[in-house]
């Protein structure tokens, strides 16, 4: 099988191909940012949701939980926890507040973060907002 295969052509394919697909990717990403507002309901992002996300990050919840499927696989998925708890923020807040300080013997358990009332409300609001994002109705069922 004889063919010629030059390094110049391979280099041009590398630069030309990569540039082409970078431009396509940037174009699509730009279009995505334009279309996102009506999918993620950013109009519902209030002070509580912002504080809730800050608390979510400052306490490294992603270290055990997954959120929209991304994170650690040690603890349940939380993108639809608001629905799983019967669309009841109080239930979520009560669960977080009631975590035992030194855990449950012989079983995985969530640490006690000693959140104030406002912080609990903010976290619940953040999880509620996350559950309302139009994410291709993932996860497949209520269990997440």
């Amino acid at each position: 099988m004889s063919e010629t295969f030059t390094k110049t052509m391979a280099r041009n394919i590398f630069y030309g191909g990569s540039l082409f697909f970078i431009l396509v990717f940037l174009g699509l990403s730009f279009h995505t940012t334009r279309v996102l507002p009506e999918r993620d309901h950013r109009e519902n992002i209030n002070e509580d949701v912002i504080l809730g996300k800050k608390l979510w990050e400052d306490n490294n919840c992603i270290g055990c939980h997954t959120l929209m499927g991304e994170g650690a696989y040690f603890a349940p998925e939380l993108a639809n926890v608001y629905d799983r708890f019967g669309k009841n923020k109080e239930a979520i807040k009560a669960f977080i507040k009631s975590r035992p300080a030194n855990g449950i013997p012989g079983r995985r358990s969530m640490p006690q973060f000693n959140f104030s009332e406002e912080e609990l409300e903010a976290l619940a609001e953040f999880l509620k907002w996350t559950s309302e994002i139009d994410d291709g109705n993932w996860p497949p069922n209520i269990q997440g």
């Binding site: 391979a10 990569s18 697909f21 279009h31 999918r39 139009d134």
Partner: peptide
């Protein structure tokens, strides 16, 4: 050159497989 050309050509738009369920459009 050919290997990294294929890597970027498939990898860049391959980012899409992380955009399935995070709220980004269906395409």
């Amino acid at each position: 050159y050919m290997i990294i050309a294929m890597a970027l050509i498939t990898g860049i738009l391959g980012t899409g497989h992380h955009y399935f369920w995070i709220g980004t459009p269906d395409y």
